Computed example of a mutant assay.
Amino acid sequence: MYCRKCGREIPDDSIMCGYCGTPVNPDNPYTYGGTPQNMDEGANGLGIASMILGIVAILLACCAGGKWLTFFVAAAGLILGIIALQKPKYGSSRGMALAGVICSVIALLMKIIVIILLGVGIGTFLYSHMFHF
């Protein structure tokens, strides 16, 4: 067999040309370093979903209402992000999954701080107005 790029003769069982490095069969994803390209498309979807849920959770945490919705959305973003981070490192999902995890944690912390501050503020207001003689 001959290389389609440089024209030199190569063994019939070759995966790539030993002279120029051109793959014998470019349609085979295993010819480039032995690892298929974009093998796990599901991790990309999980990373994107995690990032979107994390951003939505931050927006919900900024609102006075939606206390439980914030926790559910942030928890879903956190779980999907952790699952995506445990998948093999193909595609661009790792960065998006990490962003989703960080945004979800920030949203949870923001909502907890808001709940604590509102609780302290309401408690102080009730104490000062109800028990003021």
Rank of each mutant, 00 (worst) to 15 (best):
D12G: 07
L109A: 14
G100V: 10
L109M: 13
A75K: 00
Y19M: 04
R94H: 01
P36Y: 08
V56H: 09
M39W: 05
L60A: 14
L78S: 02
D13R: 10
C103Y: 11
R8Y: 06
A49Y: 02
C62T: 13
T35D: 02
I113C: 13
P36W: 09
I116N: 03
I106K: 02
I113L: 15
V56M: 13
G34W: 00
N38T: 06
Y90N: 13
L53S: 12
R8W: 00
P11D: 02
M39N: 01
A75V: 04
G42D: 10
I15F: 05
Y90V: 11
N38Q: 13
T35G: 01
I83D: 07
N28I: 00
N44I: 03
N38H: 11
Y32V: 02
G42T: 07
I116F: 12
I102V: 15
K111F: 07
Q37D: 06
A61N: 08
G100A: 11
L78M: 10
R8H: 09
A99K: 00
T31Y: 00
T22P: 04
K67T: 10
V73F: 10
I106F: 13
P23Q: 00
A97T: 10
L85D: 06
I115R: 08
F71R: 05
G81Y: 11
L59F: 14
L117C: 07
L78Y: 14
L108T: 15
S50Y: 04
G33H: 05
A76P: 07
